[in-house]
Design a protein around this nucleic acid. Structure first.
Lengths: 343, 343
DNA sequence: TATATTTATGCAAACAGTTGCATAAATTAA
DNA sequence: TTAATTTATGCAACTGTTTGCATAAATATA
C-alpha cells in the first residue's frame, strides 16, 4: 500500500534499523549511508507512519488540552482561542500534536481513561476548574506529565502550573485608579468560589492597604457574570450610603452592567465614576466611552503551559514549575477623571 | 507494565482474540464468555491501548481540524470557539478524538504530511480559505475523507462542504431593513476576495431585485475589517451625494465604524440610519443602541462538518454532501426606525 | 445415525516501526 | 604484527491489538 521503512531500506541497500536511526538521528551513521537514505526517502516519498512509531517507541508525540465549556467563559471568549493558539504553536515547534478534549463536566475520569490511560498522549494540560485531587494523585502515581492552567488546591501547589498573576492585576487596577484621582474603589467579582476572583480581590486589598486607603468591606461584591447582575449591584451601591467613585469588574459583562447603572443614576464615566474591567476584550475599545482594562496574556499562558509540559515529558525528573504571567493596564477613557493633557 | 489484552485473556481463560472480539463487538461470543471477560476487564482495570489498536486496525479514530490564525477572525472571534466545540462534541459522541493543527499560512503541504500521510488521523476538516486545488486533488486520489468549512473552488463544488448560508443572510438583512422602512441600503464588505462576502452581496442584490428596489452599484463597498475603515467609508457615503439610510456590515468592526460615522455627521441610529452586522457577537447587545445582527450558527457548522466527515470515514462510497446552515435575524434597537409598538 | 450447518473459540500472522545486542570492518594503541 | 578500541551496520525481538482461517463442539437436517 504505502511506502514503509522496509521499502526504503531495500531501495537503499541497508537494513530498516539503519533507516530508523537516520530518521531519529540516533547512533552513528556514515555520511554516505545517511545521504543515500535521505535521497531514497525523498525519491519514494516516504513518510514515517506516526501510529507505528508511537506504538514501537511508546511515546505518542501528542499532548491533550482538556477543557470544559464552562471555563471558556470564565476568563473570556478569547481565553480559549488565544490559549489554544499558544499551546498549539509551542507543541508544533517541538513536534507534538495537540488533541482537544472536552472534560464534559465532572467526567474528568472519562478524559483520564480516554486520553491518559489509553496511551493516546504523552501529557495533558487542564484548567484548575476541572481539577479533582484524586485525579491529580493518580497522575502523580503514574508519573504522568501534566500542567494546570490556574492555581491548583494547596495539596498540589508544587506541581506544574501556570496562571495569570491575578493578584498583581487587582493591585494594578487599584493603583491606576488612585493615580487618576479616584478614592472609593469597589470590586465586583464574577463569583466567590473562583480562585482568580479571590486573587484579584487579594491584590485589590493589598494595594489599598499599601497606599493606606480605607478598606470598606461592602465594597467587595460577588455577582454573577452578567450585565444584569452588574447593573443591579452597581445601582444599589451608587444609590446607597457611601457610594464608590470607581469600579473594578472581573469581566466585561459586569463592566457593561456598571456602565448602565452609572447612566441610570444620572452620573457619568469617567468624570464621576471610574471603571476598569479585567481581560482586554475587543468590547473595551468599541464602546463609548472606551474602557480601561487589565490585560491578561492568554496567549503567553498557553505557550508557557505547553513549554513546561514538554519539558516535563522530556525529563520526568524535572521538579515543579509555578509560573505567573504578568498583567498590564491598558488605559482608555473610562478612567480619565481629569482630562488628559495630550501633547 | 500496564494491563494488556493478554493479561485479560489469561485471567479469563480465553484467547486474546476472544477478548478483542468482545471489546469490538465483532463475531459471535457466548453470553457467559462475554460476561466473564467484562468482569475480568473491570477487575484488572483494563483500558485498551489506543495506539496499538490504531496500529493493528489501520484506523486512528481521530480527525483533525486544520486552521489558520487568519481565519479565526474571518468569521468572528467566536467562530473558532463555537465551531471547535461543535466538532469536538460530535467527534466525541462517535468515539473520535480531535486534533487541532495550525495550517501555518501556505504550509498546507506541511499539514498534509504531518497529519494525513503519516496516518495520524482518519479524516480532516479544513476551512475554505486554506484550500489549494492540488491539495484537494491529492486527497481525492488517496480517497482520504475531508470536509471543507465554506464553499470550495468550482472544481470541487461536489466534494463535502458545509457553509453558512451567506446568500440567505444577505437577503434576510435587506428584507428586514425594508420591512422597517429603510429604503437606501448600503453593504460594507470586509474584503472583495472572501467567498462569504461575495455570497452576502449576492443575497443583498437578489433581495433588492426581488423587492424591485433600485440597486446603486456604489452602495457596495469593500473595506478592510476594521473600525477605521468602516468609519471612513461610511462617513464618505453619508456626506456624499445620494447617501444611504441603512448599512449592512460584514462584521462588527465595520459596524462600529458605521456607528461612529453616523454620530460624527450628526445623524442617529435608528431614527435616521439603520444598521445590521453579521455574526451575533456579544458586542451587539452590549453597545447602545444595541445592534440587529444576522446570526450565524457556527456551532451547528462545526457539528455538521464533523458529522459528515465521520459518515464519509465510515462509508467511503458516500457521495458528496453540500450543506448550507441557515441564518437568522436577531432584532435589536438599531433597526427600529419607527418605535416598536410593544404590547 | 450420519451428514451438513451453525456457533464459539483459538492460532498465528500481520501492522511498521524501534532498540538492545552482536558483529564485522576500520582504526588506534601496544 | 597483534590486541584493543571505535565505528557502522544488521539481526531479531518486541510493542498490543486485530483478523482471516482453521477447528472443535453443538445443533439441525436428512
Amino acid at each position: 500500500m504505502s511506502v514503509t521503512i522496509k521499502d526504503v531500506a531495500n531501495a537503499a541497500g541497508v537494513s530498516p534499523s539503519t533507516v530508523s536511526r537516520v530518521i531519529n538521528k540516533k547512533g552513528v551513521i556514515s555520511p554516505e549511508t545517511e545521504e543515500k537514505i535521505f535521497a531514497v526517502m525523498k525519491e519514494l516519498n516516504y513518510i514515517p507512519n506516526k501510529t507505528a512509531r508511537s506504538f514501537a517507541s511508546g511515546s505518542t508525540m501528542a499532548i491533550a488540552l482538556i477543557i470544559d465549556v464552562a471555563d471558556v467563559r470564565a476568563y473570556s471568549n478569547n481565553f480559549f482561542n488565544n490559549s489554544v493558539f499558544g499551546i498549539e504553536t509551542v507543541a508544533h515547534q517541538n513536534g507534538y500534536d495537540l488533541i482537544i478534549t472536552n472534560g464534559r463536566r465532572n467526567d474528568i475520569e472519562g478524559s483520564m481513561e480516554n486520553i491518559v490511560l489509553s496511551k493516546k498522549v504523552d501529557g495533558i494540560i487542564l484548567p484548575e476548574t476541572m481539577v479533582k485531587t484524586d485525579f491529580l494523585r493518580k497522575l502523580d502515581e503514574m508519573d504522568f506529565p501534566y500542567v494546570i492552567l490556574g492555581q491548583p488546591p494547596v495539596s498540589h501547589q508544587w506541581c506544574n502550573w501556570v496562571d495569570i498573576n491575578n493578584v498583581q492585576g487587582g493591585a494594578l487596577a487599584v493603583e491606576h485608579l488612585l493615580d487618576k484621582g479616584y478614592r472609593k474603589i469597589a470590586f465586583l467579582s464574577s463569583g466567590e468560589k473562583e480562585v482568580f476572583n479571590r486573587n484579584r480581590i487579594k491584590g485589590y486589598q493589598e494595594a489599598l492597604n499599601q497606599k493606606q486607603m480605607p478598606l470598606f468591606p461592602d465594597y467587595i461584591r460577588h455577582c454573577q457574570s452578567s450585565v444584569e447582575s452588574g447593573l443591579a449591584i452597581a445601582k444599589e451601591m451608587l444609590t446607597g450610603e457611601n457610594p464608590p467613585d470607581a469600579f473594578i469588574c472581573s469581566d466585561y459583562y459586569l463592566g457593561i452592567g456598571v456602565k448602565r447603572a452609572v447612566a441610570q443614576v444620572g452620573l457619568s464615566i469617567p468624570s464621576d465614576i471610574g471603571l476598569i474591567f479585567f481581560d482586554n476584550s475587543p468590547v473595551a475599545e468599541l464602546i463609548e466611552p472606551s474602557i480601561t482594562t487589565v490585560d491578561i496574556d492568554t496567549l503567553g499562558l498557553g505557550q508557557q503551559a505547553a513549554s513546561i509540559l514538554i519539558s516535563k515529558i522530556t525529563d520526568k525528573q524535572l521538579g515543579g514549575r509555578q509560573t505567573l504571567i504578568g498583567t498590564k493596564i491598558i488605559e482608555r477613557e473610562s478612567t480619565q477623571r481629569v482630562k488628559e493633557n495630550r501633547i
